[in-house]
Design a protein around this nucleic acid. Structure first.
Lengths: 238, 238
DNA sequence: CCGCGTCCGTGCGCTAGCGAACGTAGACTC
DNA sequence: GAGTCTACGTTCGCTAGCGCACGGACGCGG
């Protein structure tokens, strides 16, 4: 497993050379296998994680075991905002949704850098706001949009955080992220496949027509993307 | 209209006397009539607003006019976090849900105070995290819970931000907040009335049995409340 | 090449919530 | 005290999504 380059994470790449120089010695490679729980609800974090190739889902698991994704974090962001927001913990869980690499940074170094009130602080706060937008839009989407539309939104959000047009992801997993039944995902994915938008096969999804996927999605994807671009924080779109 | 006392807002009340002294000259009373749009999606804010007796809903309005509440802000918080988070704007709208008073502070004073990196900054960031929790829980609730349960949650959140057990609020308005049909609220409120939990009459809701209301609510209310109490940021419960 | 486990497709009955329309009763106006 | 308006109640047909159950198909290991 090659050591990930800090420049692969957009937040780290945005740092000034002086800042990056200070952080670099403390950034340690951290592998993220599929399904790994990066943090558990209520646990106190001792690191923040900057994904490079991995994708992490923030999700809330209810008392009865049902779950729902709150937001998704890829190479454009970081996992563990509660460390600098001052809350220490959050009631949600972070799970690796796509295996890959990340860099992690011990809490004390992050706090030190944050308290310098420099561009790192600004960057982290701006990123947090983009995360807030994503959460808000998730709430709206959960309220008003069909499973079909939500699947499109979800695929696009994942796609933007991946180097290729292929996702490794079972319908069961997508269902648990969206908080719907697996059968609902099967039905929605079936429609997309018939429309020639994707190709699904035993946990491998190839996106064939991204433009059509965007057209079939609800407005929520575009809102999040536009807002993040405005904040100069969005992954490049392939 | 009496000038609101800064101590009526929990954030302002938590400031050190030195901080409050610095801010006090710049805090101006700002009335909040029902329905007033405190900020519009995308507009650049020039003040932050600290409600004292008013309650403000953050909601997202979709292209087709449908809406959904993202979070609610009362005397425990402030409206306008994007000013110190660095984004300047957000894609949501803030609307006065319960008429009352607030104090507002011009952006430049807030930014100055924030950049001192003192307890005010910590306080604002901790509050932002509590807001994030509320949004996340709203997303989950929208996904998994019935209108009945959501109504209970919503009533409790409003109740905690009010001095009395009576809300002035039409079913139409509640429906637009929850993002459901008015008829759905009528049905849910009818059940609560039959159960002796509330008394509804032409825009006036009296809560008769708060304990039962909490029992009929989903876990989401308690999650938000516990998390905010943990962050030492929650209104006292009557 | 056989067996088994994972993953995906399908069918069926059921309920919650939607959309639209209409009825009614309290409250306010003049 | 008659008219009017706003807020709430009720109905009906419809659809999306749920829970459950089963079956088939692909792929891996032996």
């Amino acid at each position: 497993m090659p050591a990930p380059n800090p420049k692969e994470n957009l937040l780290l790449a945005s740092l000034s050379s002086a800042e990056l120089k200070r952080m670099h010695p403390h950034l340690e490679p951290f592998p993220m296998p599929l399904g790994h729980v990066v943090y558990e609800s209520g646990r106190i974090l001792d690191h923040v994680y900057f994904p490079t190739t991995a994708i992490v889902s923030l999700l809330y698991v209810m008392e009865n075991g049902a779950s729902a994704e709150i937001a998704v974090v890829g190479y454009e962001g970081l996992v563990g905002i509660s460390l600098f927001m001052g809350g220490e913990t959050t009631p949600s869980r972070a799970v690796v949704q796509t295996a890959g690499h990340s860099l992690r940074l011990a809490a004390k170094y992050l706090r030190t850098e944050f308290s310098r009130a420099g561009s790192m602080q600004q960057l982290l706060l701006r990123y947090t706001q983009s995360l807030i937008t994503q959460m808000a839009q998730t709430a709206v989407c959960n309220r008003h949009h069909s499973v079909d539309q939500q699947l499109c939104r979800w695929l696009l959000l994942s796609l933007d955080r991946l180097p290729t047009l292929e996702l490794v992801m079972t319908q069961e997993l997508i269902a648990s992220m969206l908080g719907v039944r697996r059968e609902g995902v099967t039905a929605a994915a079936g429609k997309l496949q018939k429309a020639g938008v994707i190709n699904y096969s035993r946990g491998h999804i190839k996106v064939l027509d991204r433009a059509k996927l965007e057209a079939m999605s609800c407005e929520c994807y575009q809102v999040v993307r536009k807002e993040c671009e405005r904040l100069a924080l969005y992954p490049t779109v392939k």
